[in-house]
Write a protein that binds this DNA or RNA. Structure first.
Lengths: 190, 190
DNA sequence: CGCGCGATTGAGTAATTTCAAATCTAGTGG
DNA sequence: CCACTAGATTTGAAATTACTCAATCGCGCG
């Protein structure tokens, strides 16, 4: 468990170094949580109390449309943050589901906790600022790739960029993430 | 010009109120800029020195693919921020173009300026943190809509949500933003 | 008045989806 | 170690959807 907290500290220090004393202040804001494969972290209609930093495992965040089809918004593995951020931020019921593709573990941060951290520790405000900004840029890139590239090209780029993720995820889920059917994905490459 | 600075102050204060003294410190970080219709704010291959807060007018940020086709990532009108954030953040050449659909005016903030503001004024770090976070959520919603909804539904939602924007933008640009051809968009609705 | 741009319409083509069936694979219990 | 099953993947063929290319229409501006 000590070990796992160190992972979080290291993650924060990649953006802004902190002293031992600061860390003593920070870490109690986070609680630890463990789930098994197929269990839900977030469910549509339920309140979303936390955002989650993944220390182990793999999850998918997705919406279900009118025909019951699953559309994957995000995969979250080690060192990723995940939640239904929209619901978390506005404290409204979730519109997404998030469940475990593998047994997983997280650190959880509540809304009050995050705001208190940001108000009382400028370093943490900067940490979240920079994280959000990187996240924003990454999503812009993803939208651009959805507009400019075919699903086949996006699939090949995913293979290049995140081979470790692709290995761990069934192809039908990758298809859902890329926005095509599993049959279409299956007809790719050569 | 006084007037225009007030627009920026009001925009900041929607998220975090500031004193007159703080404002005196903040506003000199911003410079003013004006462009006419069809002029470029950002061009592919060029360095991106600023992020821009639009006070007047309307712009489009887009990429051009291998076949010379334009794919619109973002429209930016009054009170929107725009830039090639990826290039700005990493100080690499732009991959996007941004040009004016109408005569436009902006406040410009350089990278050093932004970091200095954030380091020396926790309130501004919080402002940008919250702005980025909202932006991140909005892009997640857009990705989700691209995955779950048809272009026709997305078009109708755009009409409902931003009727004022839709009026000002030629339909062929909306088509590019939605990810379909102008012919397809033209066959929608009635 | 006519030019030029944007929007629309039509017809043929290409790509994706849908539905169905066959195959493959990993994990389970005997 | 093997057979069995559930889930995942692949393949085929028909139906649907969007795209391309071409032509036409409409309107505002000079």
């Amino acid at each position: 468990m000590e070990q796992q907290y160190l992972v979080l500290r290291k993650h924060i220090e990649e953006i802004c170094p902190i002293s031992d004393m600061e860390w003593q202040y920070i870490y109690p804001f986070f609680t630890h949580k463990k789930l098994k494969k197929h269990q839900f972290l977030v469910q549509k209609g339920q309140p979303v109390s936390c955002e989650y930093f993944v220390i182990k495992g793999l999850l998918k965040a997705y919406a279900i449309d009118g025909e019951g089809k699953e559309h994957i918004l995000q995969f979250a593995m080690e060192y990723y943050w995940t939640s239904d951020f929209q619901a978390f931020q506005t404290q409204t019921p979730a519109t997404l589901f998030i469940d475990c593709i593998e047994d997983s573990e997280f650190f959880c941060l509540g809304k009050e906790g995050r705001e208190q951290l940001c108000q009382e520790m400028p370093k943490m405000a900067n940490f979240f600022r920079i994280k959000s900004h990187y996240g924003y840029i990454a999503l812009q890139q993803r939208i651009l790739s959805m507009l400019t590239e075919t699903a086949e090209v996006r699939y090949n780029n995913l293979l290049k960029k995140l081979p470790h993720l692709v290995q761990r995820v069934p192809k039908k889920l990758l298809a859902s993430y890329l926005g095509v059917t599993r049959e279409t994905l299956s007809r790719f490459k050569g």
